[in-house]
Design a protein around this nucleic acid. Structure first.
Lengths: 177, 177
DNA sequence: CACGATAGTCCCGATATGTGACTATCACAA
DNA sequence: TTGTGATAGTCACATATCGGGACTATCGTG
């Protein structure tokens, strides 16, 4: 989790000298999004560590989250995750060294290589999926199932409005899996 | 925007070879949070740049978001933003060089210094507030005012459950100020 | 007035990211 | 079948960013 940025607030007309307090009481959308993301990252990777996956960091989530058993090209991973292909290459190097993925030649294109999860990589994915599902269940318990379902729909609708790429920094550097 | 991490997905039981596609169709909470945060960051700082504040980055948001006219101690900013105090010190150095803040001695404690926004800093805050409010209005238009109000309440309720500090990376590196 | 804690800063090393260039291969068309 | 421009992946270098340790000044308490 190299969390890398902060945000702002839509607090309206805070009286002088009270801004920092108002922001903590009525945080803007950026702060809410950041808290949601980083708290999720913390918990997911802490729990992954307890389950034998202590060497992967949120950075690797950009790769792990989008792998599937059939293999995915690095370029595709870059597109999905919104990272530069050089960075994807490095992350794949690291994951390969840790035994989470393998590179195989793509039979359909000799320039390309498929990034394929190993059994360990698949295990990490399963654990990460479980952990996130568990967190989501907890949130559903906090605000109620219907409210949580609506929250997810609303987030999906809002985020579908915007696209993103390497120069648009879409991604979810937050997904571990 | 040095966005720095990605996340995972709670996709349940994706059939082999279909994971990456399912994730894009039904992204997990981490990916949703990341997209929300980074798209907001991109837009806020792009629009701030158009309004004469092109030299501040999302990193500075951790400071700018929590300043108020009365001044805030660096330690308090570190606590609010979840960054280490060394980093806060550096960000304040940068903002001071750019003319957004000043350091003044704290009359109540000769060890401490108050970080006080200059007129330029206050201008940035006002613009950032307006931009975020505008984005929030757009989102409300997309999913409806009541749904958006509920989204905000739900996010607040969920994020209030978790605290965060320098070693818990709460913050919202996303807020510009 | 001693003692432990706190505010802020400096220094250094570790981490992470971005850019440019390069090779191999592909797709398409003349 | 050969030439051309585009694409996949990688290497190397520069830059940005962060984290830990240590240090000074000051506080607060007994």
């Amino acid at each position: 989790m190299t969390s890398t940025e902060w945000y702002y607030t839509g607090v309206t007309h805070a009286p002088e000298g009270e801004r920092s307090r108002m922001i903590t009481q009525d945080p803007d959308l950026g702060i809410l999004a950041a808290r949601l993301l980083f708290s999720l990252q913390r918990e997911v990777f802490a729990r992954l560590a307890e389950r034998g996956h202590g060497e992967v960091s949120p950075r690797h989530g950009a790769i792990l989250a989008y792998l599937d058993a059939g293999g995915v090209r690095a370029t595709e991973l870059a597109r999905l995750s919104g990272r530069h292909k050089q960075i994807v290459g490095r992350l794949v190097d690291e994951l390969e060294a840790l035994g989470y993925v393998e590179r195989r030649p793509d039979p359909a294109d000799r320039r390309a290589k498929l990034v394929v999860p190993t059994e360990r990589g698949l295990d990490e994915q399963r654990h990460a999926d479980e952990i996130i599902a568990d967190i989501e269940r907890r949130h559903a318990g906090t605000i109620g199932e219907p409210a949580y379902a609506q929250l997810r729909r609303a987030l999906k609708a809002i985020t579908d409005e915007t696209a993103a790429g390497p120069d648009q920094q879409d991604d979810s550097r937050s997904t571990p899996g």
